Lab assay of single mutants.
Amino acid sequence: GKMTGIVKWFNADKGFGFITPDDGSKDVFVHFSAIQNDGYKSLDEGQKVSFTIESGAKGPAAGNVTSL
């Protein structure tokens, strides 16, 4: 299901970062391709987001990332 969290950091040049889930679980990798907006796909440190957990090739990653 949907989770919420805070963006820990995001490197716009490399197109990835990490989200710290509100439930205290392990930080989740986020790739820019998972960001659900029409414009420039980037996130800001400290931004609140909702997301799902998808299993990627390198382990769990955030999917369906939407800013709240």
Score class of each variant (00 low, 15 high):
residue 41 K to T: 11
residue 24 G to S: 05
residue 42 S to W: 15
residue 63 G to M: 12
residue 21 P to W: 04
residue 21 P to D: 02
residue 44 D to K: 13
residue 9 W to V: 04
residue 53 I to T: 06
residue 15 G to D: 01
residue 29 F to T: 02
residue 3 M to G: 06
residue 11 N to P: 02
residue 29 F to V: 03
residue 21 P to S: 05
residue 51 F to T: 00
residue 33 S to G: 06
residue 24 G to I: 04
residue 57 A to M: 13
residue 10 F to E: 00
residue 37 N to V: 14
residue 48 K to A: 11
residue 46 G to W: 05
residue 45 E to K: 13
residue 28 V to A: 03
residue 13 D to F: 15
residue 11 N to G: 05
residue 48 K to L: 09
residue 14 K to D: 05
residue 55 S to C: 05
residue 10 F to C: 02
residue 3 M to T: 14
residue 34 A to G: 14
residue 7 V to R: 00
residue 21 P to K: 03
residue 49 V to Q: 00
residue 35 I to K: 02
residue 1 G to W: 07
residue 3 M to P: 06
residue 25 S to T: 09
residue 30 V to N: 00
residue 57 A to C: 05
residue 3 M to I: 13
residue 21 P to T: 06
residue 22 D to R: 04
residue 18 F to T: 03
residue 34 A to E: 09
residue 21 P to G: 03
residue 38 D to V: 13
residue 31 H to L: 06
residue 53 I to V: 11
residue 54 E to M: 15
residue 17 G to F: 01
residue 8 K to H: 09
residue 15 G to T: 02
residue 43 L to R: 01
residue 14 K to T: 04
residue 67 S to C: 05
residue 39 G to R: 11
residue 41 K to G: 09
residue 60 P to V: 15
residue 5 G to R: 00
residue 6 I to E: 05
residue 27 D to R: 05
residue 25 S to G: 10
residue 40 Y to A: 11
residue 5 G to I: 00
residue 26 K to D: 14
residue 9 W to L: 04
residue 29 F to A: 03
residue 25 S to I: 07
residue 49 V to M: 02
residue 36 Q to E: 10
residue 53 I to C: 04
residue 25 S to Y: 08
residue 23 D to E: 12
residue 20 T to E: 08
residue 8 K to V: 06
residue 47 Q to D: 09
residue 35 I to E: 02
residue 37 N to K: 10
residue 2 K to H: 11
residue 43 L to K: 01
residue 67 S to T: 15
residue 5 G to L: 00
residue 13 D to C: 05
residue 33 S to L: 14
residue 62 A to P: 01
residue 19 I to S: 00
residue 59 G to E: 04
residue 51 F to V: 01
residue 59 G to C: 04
residue 63 G to S: 15
residue 60 P to H: 10
residue 51 F to H: 01
residue 64 N to K: 11
residue 55 S to R: 15
residue 67 S to F: 15
residue 55 S to G: 15
residue 28 V to I: 12
residue 65 V to W: 00
residue 56 G to S: 10
residue 20 T to I: 12
residue 13 D to I: 15
residue 54 E to N: 07
residue 4 T to G: 06
residue 53 I to D: 02
residue 23 D to G: 11
residue 5 G to A: 02
residue 24 G to N: 08
residue 47 Q to C: 04
residue 61 A to Q: 13
residue 68 L to K: 06
residue 36 Q to W: 09
residue 26 K to N: 13
residue 5 G to D: 00
residue 38 D to S: 15
residue 55 S to N: 14
residue 22 D to S: 13
residue 58 K to Y: 13
residue 5 G to P: 00
residue 15 G to W: 02
residue 48 K to Q: 09
residue 11 N to L: 09
residue 9 W to I: 04
residue 42 S to R: 12
residue 54 E to Y: 13
residue 59 G to P: 06
residue 20 T to P: 01
residue 26 K to H: 14
residue 43 L to P: 02
residue 9 W to G: 02
residue 47 Q to Y: 06
residue 4 T to F: 14
residue 11 N to H: 11
residue 42 S to N: 08
residue 14 K to A: 15
residue 7 V to E: 00
residue 13 D to E: 15
residue 25 S to P: 05
residue 32 F to S: 11
residue 23 D to F: 10
residue 45 E to I: 12
residue 12 A to Q: 12
residue 22 D to P: 03
residue 66 T to H: 06
residue 25 S to D: 08
residue 59 G to W: 09
residue 13 D to L: 14
residue 19 I to P: 00
residue 41 K to E: 07
residue 62 A to C: 04
residue 26 K to W: 09
residue 35 I to P: 02
residue 43 L to N: 01
residue 40 Y to E: 11
residue 65 V to T: 02
residue 13 D to W: 15
residue 11 N to M: 07
residue 5 G to W: 01
residue 28 V to K: 03
residue 28 V to L: 11
residue 19 I to G: 00
residue 38 D to G: 10
residue 47 Q to H: 07
residue 25 S to L: 12
residue 61 A to G: 06
residue 41 K to N: 06
residue 34 A to K: 11
residue 59 G to L: 11
residue 17 G to V: 01
residue 30 V to G: 00
residue 4 T to I: 08
residue 52 T to L: 12
residue 5 G to S: 00
residue 39 G to F: 11
residue 55 S to I: 10
residue 63 G to C: 05
residue 19 I to Q: 00
residue 7 V to D: 00
residue 13 D to S: 13
residue 27 D to F: 03
residue 22 D to I: 10
residue 58 K to W: 14
residue 53 I to Y: 11
residue 36 Q to G: 08
residue 60 P to C: 04
residue 4 T to E: 08
residue 9 W to T: 03
residue 40 Y to Q: 12
residue 40 Y to P: 14
residue 33 S to I: 05
residue 52 T to K: 07
residue 37 N to M: 09
residue 45 E to V: 08
residue 46 G to N: 07
residue 44 D to N: 09
residue 7 V to S: 01
residue 3 M to L: 13
residue 62 A to F: 01
residue 27 D to C: 04
residue 50 S to N: 10
residue 54 E to P: 02
residue 60 P to A: 08
residue 8 K to P: 01
residue 27 D to V: 06
residue 65 V to D: 01
residue 8 K to T: 11
residue 44 D to F: 13
residue 18 F to D: 01
residue 56 G to A: 12
residue 52 T to R: 06
residue 58 K to S: 13
residue 66 T to E: 12
residue 6 I to Y: 14
residue 32 F to I: 15
residue 60 P to D: 07
residue 16 F to M: 06
residue 36 Q to T: 15
residue 39 G to V: 14
residue 57 A to Y: 14
residue 11 N to K: 08
residue 46 G to V: 02
residue 58 K to P: 10
residue 56 G to L: 07
residue 53 I to K: 08
residue 59 G to H: 08
residue 38 D to K: 08
residue 34 A to P: 02
residue 62 A to N: 01
residue 45 E to C: 05
residue 27 D to S: 07
residue 4 T to C: 05
residue 65 V to A: 02
residue 67 S to I: 15
residue 39 G to H: 08
residue 66 T to C: 05
residue 40 Y to W: 14
residue 40 Y to S: 08
residue 33 S to Q: 07
residue 59 G to Y: 07
residue 61 A to T: 12
residue 12 A to S: 14
residue 17 G to N: 00
residue 31 H to T: 04
residue 9 W to E: 03
residue 43 L to H: 02
residue 35 I to M: 06
residue 47 Q to R: 07
residue 64 N to G: 09
residue 41 K to R: 13
residue 23 D to W: 06
residue 36 Q to F: 09
residue 24 G to Q: 12
residue 61 A to L: 13
residue 17 G to L: 01
residue 56 G to Q: 12
residue 30 V to P: 00
residue 10 F to D: 00
residue 13 D to T: 11
residue 2 K to T: 10
residue 18 F to G: 02
residue 6 I to W: 11
residue 6 I to P: 01
residue 5 G to N: 00
residue 1 G to M: 15
residue 45 E to T: 15
residue 25 S to W: 08
residue 63 G to A: 13
residue 33 S to D: 05
residue 49 V to H: 01
residue 52 T to I: 14
residue 68 L to S: 07
residue 63 G to R: 11
residue 11 N to E: 05
residue 8 K to R: 10
residue 51 F to G: 01
residue 24 G to C: 04
residue 39 G to L: 09
residue 27 D to L: 09
residue 24 G to H: 10
residue 44 D to S: 14
residue 46 G to Q: 06
residue 36 Q to D: 13
residue 10 F to P: 00
residue 26 K to A: 15
residue 8 K to A: 07
residue 67 S to N: 12
residue 21 P to I: 06
residue 67 S to E: 10
residue 8 K to Q: 04
residue 68 L to G: 09
residue 38 D to Q: 12
residue 28 V to E: 01
residue 7 V to W: 02
residue 65 V to G: 01
residue 25 S to H: 07
residue 63 G to N: 14
residue 49 V to G: 00
residue 57 A to H: 08
residue 24 G to P: 03
residue 59 G to V: 05
residue 11 N to Y: 11
residue 16 F to H: 07
residue 59 G to D: 04
residue 43 L to V: 06
residue 64 N to S: 11
residue 19 I to Y: 00
residue 32 F to L: 07
residue 52 T to P: 01
residue 12 A to L: 13
residue 56 G to H: 13
residue 24 G to M: 08
residue 58 K to L: 15
residue 29 F to P: 03
residue 47 Q to M: 12
residue 15 G to S: 03
residue 48 K to R: 07
residue 12 A to W: 12
